[in-house]
């Protein structure tokens, strides 16, 4: 079991579009006032290695608190990684100065979960989008600028004659379209969408998913799409990374991860998705995970999944940290034989 394993996910910073190489993002909680003892460190992202190909949509899923947003803010360099390196088109973002990052940021944009909180309520759509367009094209003004704003609105399916409106004058789905238009305005190469549909109801979710998928195809964008709902990610993503407590537990083509998950955690996430069918839904057995995820402040030593695993345990296993390993072609999982085996056994025939 413990023979040496090669670094599981091969990375090539020179040629891959986006590379995360052993990225850690920790939050130091500081020291107590009196005793000056450390209050601890939150290991929100704890050793993530990933590549994203140009033009690809990578889905990132995992339970609340597993570090999805922290990982995306680290890629955006809104938070600097504690260690590890991030490359975009061969350029090491994690080594750039704050000034250089600001210049570079027009190439990567983010869409947030709550479109209301992320849009300035006192700016009209015209002002918001103009400002974003001018980060790349500072010299565009007047009619040319308005024409670009109108184009962007049409691209996201909004009526250009709504450009003088404020965010509160739109419905939730329309506001999310404005947020998407703003992310597209600087003509980025990479978009990170952090739970862009979680707050919306089903009928609007589908509209936004269609839109994001169409735009990535038409504009040749690369996207990281974050959600806690595998059924949503399954639809939009080419590949899926499953995150748990700061690490990647499984990674592969979307169809492989969804239809033939290797890790029991992925299977549990899928089995928790309620299906709109009363007969099967009221009778089927779910794989139930125990309790909440452990705190990322004091994660258990070794395997951090064992407190929740539905699998019978060999106590010795707890002390080994399973390494992400290519188990099937292009399909990686944290390689502990028990959890991987359990997924195989629960797979429907």
């Amino acid at each position: 079991m413990s023979e040496h394993v090669e670094p599981a996910v091969p990375v090539d910073p020179k040629n891959d579009f986006l590379v995360l190489d052993d990225v850690h993002t920790h939050f130091d909680m500081g020291k107590t006032l009196l005793t000056r003892e450390s209050k601890g460190v939150v290991k929100a992202v704890d050793g993530v290695t990933l590549t994203v190909k140009e033009g690809e949509i990578l889905g990132l899923v995992g339970e609340s608190g597993c570090g999805k947003s922290t990982l995306s803010r680290t890629v955006m360099q809104l938070i600097r990684p504690t260690s590890g390196r991030i490359f975009l088109e061969g350029k090491e973002l994690s080594a750039l100065s704050d000034t250089d990052i600001r210049k570079e940021r027009i190439n990567f944009q983010m869409i947030f979960q709550d479109p209301y909180a992320s849009l300035n309520p006192r700016m009209t759509v015209l002002d918001t989008l103009s400002e974003a367009i001018r980060t790349r094209h500072p010299n565009v003004n007047g009619d040319a600028l308005r024409a670009r704003v109108a184009d962007l609105l049409r691209t996201v399916g909004l009526n250009p004659n709504q450009m003088k409106r404020y965010p509160h004058e739109f419905s939730g789905g329309q506001r999310q379209r404005v947020a998407i238009a703003r992310a597209l305005a600087p003509e980025p190469k990479l978009i990170i969408a952090d739970e862009p549909v979680s707050a919306l109801d089903v009928s609007i979710q589908s509209q936004i998913l269609n839109l994001l998928k169409r735009l990535t195809r038409e504009m040749g964008l690369t996207m990281i799409f974050i959600s806690h709902d595998l059924s949503v990610v399954r639809y939009i993503a080419d590949r899926i990374a499953v995150m748990y407590l700061g690490r990647i537990l499984e990674l592969g083509e979307a169809s492989d991860v969804v239809d033939h998950p290797l890790h029991v955690y992925t299977r549990a996430l899928m089995s928790a998705i309620p299906r709109p069918d009363p007969t099967s839904e009221k009778t089927r057995n779910r794989i139930v995970l125990q309790g909440d995820p452990p705190s990322p402040m004091n994660p258990p030593e070794g395997c951090n999944f064992w407190p929740r695993s539905p699998v019978e345990h060999d106590e010795r296993m707890k002390h080994e940290e399973p390494v992400l390993t290519e188990i099937r072609p292009n399909h990686f999982a944290a390689n502990c034989p028990f959890c991987v085996q359990a997924a195989a056994e629960t797979e429907p025939a």
């Binding site: 089903v202 589908s206 998913l209 269609n210 169409r214 059924s231 399954r234 639809y235 979307a254 709109p276």
Partner: peptide, 22 residues
Amino acid sequence: SLQKTIPSLQTKGEELYTIPGL
């Protein structure tokens, strides 16, 4: 129509069904 919009029921690869209009 509402039943048809549920993402998890739809085939991957196709455009998701949405109810037209507001």
